[in-house]
Each structure stands twice: as C-alpha cells, then as structure tokens.
Design a binder for these strands. Structure first.
Lengths: 157, 157
DNA sequence: GGCATAACCGACCGCTCTAGTAGGATTTAT
DNA sequence: ATAAATCCTACTAGAGCGGTCGGTTATGCC
C-alpha cells in the first residue's frame, strides 16, 4: 500500500468540507457520521490539516471546520503530504533546498545510486498525479456520482 | 515513504546481476559485499524475486543467481511488485479480473468513493513510471555515473 | 451564570510490518 | 570429504497504524 488510511480518511474529510456550500463551519461529528469514520481518529487527522493551513477551525458551540481556501485552489499533494508526511518513494530521498533531489547513498564513496533514476520517475509520477488534482475536482466527481442512485436502482430493478 | 528498503535493496540486487556480462551465476555474498547489504536479509528478498520468475538460481559451490531474462526485457513494475507486493495506493483498491479497478467502498449503499479519482491517477502515475523503466536502463544509468569519480575528485580538489 | 457543544491535547494500546539475525538443511564443484 | 553456496524456518526489536479515552479549553445560547 502506497498510502495509509490517514490519507484516505483525510481526503474524504476534505471532500466533505468542500461539499458544504455555506461559509458556516462543519462539525467533525457530522463529518464522522456522514463518512462513517471514528470521530476521535478524525481529530488527529484534522489537526494535521489545520497545522498545514488547509482548514481553519472555530471553537465552541456551533463551531467546526472550514476550508482555508476555495476547493479549486487546494492541490491534493498538499493534502496528502500534510496527512502522510513527506512524499518520497524511498527512505534515502530527501529533497534539497532547491528543487533538487538527494540520495543519501550518493555521498558515499561508491558509485552513484543505481536506483535513483527509478525513484525519480516514480516520484515524478506521483507528484504529478497529486499536484494535478484539485479538491474541487474530487468534490465534483463525488457529487456527480451521487445521483448514480439511478444506476444503483437500475441494476436492482 | 512509498516503498520500503525491500524495494531499494531488491532493485540494487537486480542491477548488480544485470551488470554482470557473463552467463555465470553471481553469488549473493558478492552482491551483499558490493552493495554493502546484509547477506541474510538479501536471501529473503532474492527468494521473492525467484518465486516471481525474475531470477534463476544454481545451488552448490560456484552457484548463485542470474537474471531469468535479458535486462532490457525486465520491467521494473514486476520487480517492485515482487518485492513489495501488490502496488496499490490504498487498502480499498483491488484490481478486478479485467483491467478494472475496484474500491471496496463502492459496494456500500452510499455514494461512490470520493477519493477514487485521486487514487486512480496516482496509481496510473506510479505504474507508468515503473512499467516504463527497464532494468537495462538502470544498469546503464549506474555504470554511466560510476566514472563520475572525476566529479567526486573534482569537488575535493 | 450555567450548560451544551465542540475544538483541542496527550497518553495509551493492540496489531502488523520492517529489517534484520540465527541456525540449520540441502545441493554441488573440486 | 569439504567448502561454497542456495534454501528454509523461526525468532526478535522496533516503528508505525488505527483507534480509544479522558480531560481541558473555548463559545453560543437560555
């Protein structure tokens, strides 16, 4: 598994927030109920999203969470990275200050890392997929398939 | 981390085998020494590669391992999958008999999985990167950067 | 002010996987 | 026979995952 359920639950949470049109905050409890996920676990996840500046919170009664930005401006690489931590294909990958990629084996005296080419391509593929998808797309995708109730009913009938 | 060191070590092992020109088998011990990896751990990894039909073994003295096919015909998705198991972005992803992708949440009564679009793109990116890279490329890449000894010496001088 | 609601925070827990280690059994060239 | 190798199983420490729990703080509402 490339990602754990932290990413899954967290993205579902974000989509749920993105679904809400109004500017009023959504309580975690309602999200947990809607997505059928444990509330206390979602608390941990939403904390990461908040620290990453992806959602804002309002405390107290009628409080809850809102997207910090319009869904169309939220790229999924930021979301997944907030939840799962640095996205790198391999332990030895840490990106240097500039856009460069380092491999810890390279500093060794021996030959350059034979796997670097592969992991760079993998990382490129993943980053492209994540950064090329916005939360708004997922919201639209999920709401569009919600009226697939027809399809469900159709298959039953 | 998308992958564990199993993939890292295993790919390094494959590259090491691919480097050898002759048709005579290479002992795991020499690979372990060349790559500075624990021999007993490599044994576990190479067993997976053998079961996946990627390498062949000859037992006894002067025995060892060989690539089962020319390096140019070995695609890295097969290698990584043999080492890490099914490559899927998320727990709920299991590919159906035909090339289709299933999400376990879809069978539920509720709306289709809001994350499916994202994970499909991610999986596409990873698969494309892995399947689009051959072992031969990695072998060439690593041997080409081996004479970068100049660069290393150059930076020291 | 008091109360319900909800965000916040940290500790804890069982489980599985990772990255090894260890020890032996088997096969084979010399 | 012996040494060199693959092969196989069992074991282990540690880390992360998925989740629970209890308590603290902040806030709208009556």
């Amino acid at each position: 598994m490339l990602f754990s359920t932290k990413a899954e639950y967290g993205v579902r949470l974000m989509v749920e927030l993105g679904r809400q049109p109004g500017s009023q905050p959504v309580s975690l409890g309602s999200v947990a109920e809607a997505e059928n996920l444990p509330l206390s676990y979602l608390e941990h996840l939403v904390a990461k999203l908040r620290k990453a500046g992806l959602v804002t919170s309002t405390r107290g009664a009628h409080g809850g969470y809102r997207l910090a930005k319009p869904a169309a401006e939220i790229k999924m690489d930021a979301v997944v990275e907030a939840l799962e931590g640095q996205i790198a294909p391999m332990e030895c990958f840490h990106d240097a200050p500039e856009g460069k990629v380092l491999c810890s084996h390279e500093s060794d005296g021996d030959s350059a890392c034979s796997t670097k080419l592969l992991w760079m391509r993998v990382q490129g593929g993943v980053t492209k997929a994540l950064a090329g998808t916005t939360l708004a797309e997922l919201v639209e995708f999920s709401t569009k398939s919600e009226p697939t109730r027809e399809a469900v009913l159709g298959s039953v009938a």
